[in-house]
Nucleic acid binder design. Structure first.
Lengths: 334, 334
DNA sequence: CTGTTAGCGCTTTCAT
DNA sequence: ATGAAAGCGCTAACAG
């Protein structure tokens, strides 16, 4: 029932070594032989056994990618970029979704290690760095995605979140907005903290106020809750601009503002998000945002991993700069 | 550097067979020995090599799932359900995104076959059934997801799309709407055709008109384009209700209607989607939809696969019934 | 250019 | 209860 190289060799009257050569180094085999072997493969319906190849090679040809939330297009885009670079190297990306849960993150790390993935790309949740260090010490190349770490113990690809937060609030202030609200959380997520830091800095410099509305996750639902809180306030107590820690949140806020009090955006409250997911431009009020080169991040992460694993490069830390994208939600000055 | 069962055996002064038993059948080993071996595993940082296990077992413990579009939460939810059932069997789900492209679908099928996945769950694009049949004949259990096929050659889990389409239009007609538009496409996708068929049937029975606005994919962007076409029409030429083939499309239509002509939903045009993704309820005008039990579909698909592969069951075809969910977008009668 | 062979790490009889 | 040894399918090193 199951066809192996041996059966192919038999059928083509060659040795298994030759079959393997046809598969992996066809240039080392006579065209006539190649043809004969290929015909046998076709006829018998032979399909390589990846497990055997891996066992031989010592590691798989697939790269593990653990993200915080598969439902966030930002991460889907990173995955797409990673897949692209992986494909160039004839490799594959296996996606794991930690769903912001530490035990899921760990389970994926362990699973991937058993699978002897060629490398691990991870947007780590909390500071479970010791575990990653151990993994790395056992020989798996680890690249941090969308996250840097203070010491230089890991390669990483990230975006300057402090800078991004600064850009956002600077933009709002330049529109004449004076009372800005930052919507985001939880503070256990580094990106949130960094964006807030940048926002504070810009607020101080511009001499505008910045209040913080804490959320317990980075989802549309959490954004809606925050938006409802805000729109329930008396008009004079509302901020005149909102910076949301990501676009999902911003979209939730937007929906709440429009639905409840039909507060006009951007007239009464300007709104800016973060990530610039496709959906941001397609929102009812097209959303201003801070763009991060998601696909490039994924692409670069695989690239670093490949180079570090190939021994051709030391650990490297790449930091991209975010970019302000202005759309209707912040189009008019106050 | 790399630790194998052998090293563990050496360190614990037992044989490799015993180490394996500790790992797989701890009840067959003296507690004292178990402890010694466990300690050695811990000390050396031993991690099983999955490739070797697979090679031995003849197949992997992971299940392949190929979907049409990872960005559609409906499929993400199916994946989640599948993952849940797989976890119960200590198995794993590997996700492949065909992106509605036949060559990508094929690439994933081939890749999964090389990986000797325990089974394939697939929401097939076109009618590339021969390829699936061949795969099945080589021993891989195949379960069709969200799709039935006329002959009984495959197990499948689907939802009655004709019934769902019927429900949607019947609902719109019951609201007093007489001029209904179906937005969807391409017609190469079976689900679209079936939903349209049900819609036509309901329209005929209710004596209302049904026009078709064809789209080239099932995305938000395609929906926006369709919505813009519609809102560009003179008011008297517009339909008074729209049935979109999925929620992504419906959300795009909604955005276009509100943005452009600020056509009120549902007052001027009622709108209903399909899938009932989380986002539907969170839209600016909460969207009525036809709910499909996405997670249950995924869960059941794995279940069928497991049973068919275990030889305990023949091919089976499960069909779920969709359910009408009414929200604001169709709340008021004309 | 082709054939022979060892061995990747694990599990599982089969002995003891 | 534990140990010894075979073998899953493949690739690459070496020999011819």
């Amino acid at each position: 029932m199951v066809v192996s190289v041996r059966d192919v060799a038999l059928a083509a009257s060659v040795s298994v070594g030759t079959v393997s050569n046809v598969l992996n180094h066809p240039d080392k085999v006579t065209p006539a032989t190649v043809e004969r072997v290929t015909a046998a493969i076709e006829k018998l319906g032979f399909v390589r056994n990846d497990a055997a190849r891996q066992l031989r090679a010592g590691h798989s040809r697939s790269i593990g990618l653990v993200v915080l939330d598969v439902r966030n297009p930002f991460f889907t885009d990173i995955a797409r970029g990673a897949e692209e670079r992986a494909a160039e190297a004839k490799m594959t990306v296996t996606l794991g979704n930690s769903d912001e849960k530490i035990e899921r993150e760990r389970a994926y790390i362990d699973l991937f290690e058993e699978q002897r993935i060629a490398g691990l790309l991870i947007s780590p949740l909390a500071d479970d760095l010791p575990r990653l260090r151990r993994l790395r010490d056992r020989g798996t190349t680890v690249v941090l995605v969308d996250r840097e770490v203070a010491d230089e113990s890991f390669s990483s690809v990230s975006v300057d979140d402090v800078g991004g937060g600064y850009l956002a609030v600077q933009h709002l202030a330049s529109l004449g907005r004076r009372r800005i609200a930052f919507v985001g959380g939880p503070m256990g997520i580094r990106q949130v903290v960094d964006r807030l830091e940048g926002a504070s800095r810009a607020a101080n410099e511009a001499g505008v106020s910045l209040e913080v509305i804490l959320t317990d996750s980075l989802t549309v639902l959490a954004g809606r809750a925050a938006g409802e809180t805000l729109s329930a306030r008396a008009p004079e107590d509302r901020p005149d601009a909102i910076f949301a820690a990501n676009d999902l949140l911003a979209m939730g806020v937007l929906q709440a503002l429009m639905m409840r009090g039909s507060i006009r955006v951007p007239d009464e409250i300007a709104l800016i998000g973060y990530d610039d997911i496709d959906f941001a431009a397609a929102a009812v009020v097209p959303l201003s945002s801070i763009r991060q080169p998601a696909e490039l991040i994924g692409y670069t992460a695989v690239d670093l991993m490949l180079r570090e694993a190939g021994g051709q490069a030391e650990r490297e830390r790449v930091v991209f700069q975010p970019e302000l994208v202005v759309r209707d939600s912040t189009s008019r000055p106050l």
